[in-house]
Amino acid sequence: MTAQLTSNSTSIFRLSPLIRITLLSLYVALTVPLPFLAEVTNAPTPPALLWVGIGVGLVGLYAVLTERVVVDDEGIQVTYPVWVPRFFRKGWSLPWVEVKQIKPRSTGQGGLVYYFLSQDGKAYLLPMRVAGFARLVNIVQAKTGIDTTDVRPLAQPWMYLILLGFTFLLLLVDGWTIATALSL
Rank of each mutant, 00 (worst) to 15 (best):
G111A: 13
Q119P: 14
A123T: 10
Y124C: 01
V140S: 08
Q109E: 06
R105N: 01
S118M: 04
L126V: 08
T144S: 07
A134R: 10
V130I: 08
L126C: 04
A123Y: 11
Q101K: 07
G111N: 12
R135I: 15
A155P: 11
D147P: 11
I102Q: 00
L112G: 02
Y124H: 04
L125N: 14
Q101S: 07
L136S: 06
D150I: 15
A131Q: 15
L117M: 06
Y114T: 03
F133K: 08
L112Q: 09
K122F: 03
I139R: 05
T107H: 03
Y114E: 06
G108R: 15
M128L: 09
L125S: 14
D120P: 00
A134Y: 07
D147Y: 09
A123R: 09
A155Y: 15
R135K: 15
Q119F: 15
R129C: 11
L126W: 03
Q141A: 10
Y115P: 06
F133E: 04
A123C: 10
A123M: 10
D147I: 10
R135H: 15
V151N: 02
G108Y: 12
G121K: 00
I139F: 02
N138T: 11
A155I: 13
F133L: 02
K103W: 08
S118I: 02
V113A: 03
L117Q: 05
R135Y: 14
T149A: 12
K103E: 10
R105E: 02
A142W: 08
A134I: 07
L125D: 13
Q119H: 15
D120E: 01
A123F: 11
L126S: 03
G111Y: 12
A142E: 12
G110F: 13
G145F: 02
P153Q: 10
K122C: 01
T149K: 13
D120Y: 00
D147V: 12
P127Y: 12
P127H: 10
Y115H: 07
Q101D: 07
R152Y: 08
V140D: 10
K143A: 07
V137I: 13
K122G: 03
K103Y: 08
V151Y: 05
V130E: 09
V130G: 09
L112R: 05
Y124Q: 06
V130P: 09
T149Q: 15
R152P: 01
P153N: 08
A155K: 14
D150N: 15
I146G: 02
I146V: 07
N138F: 09
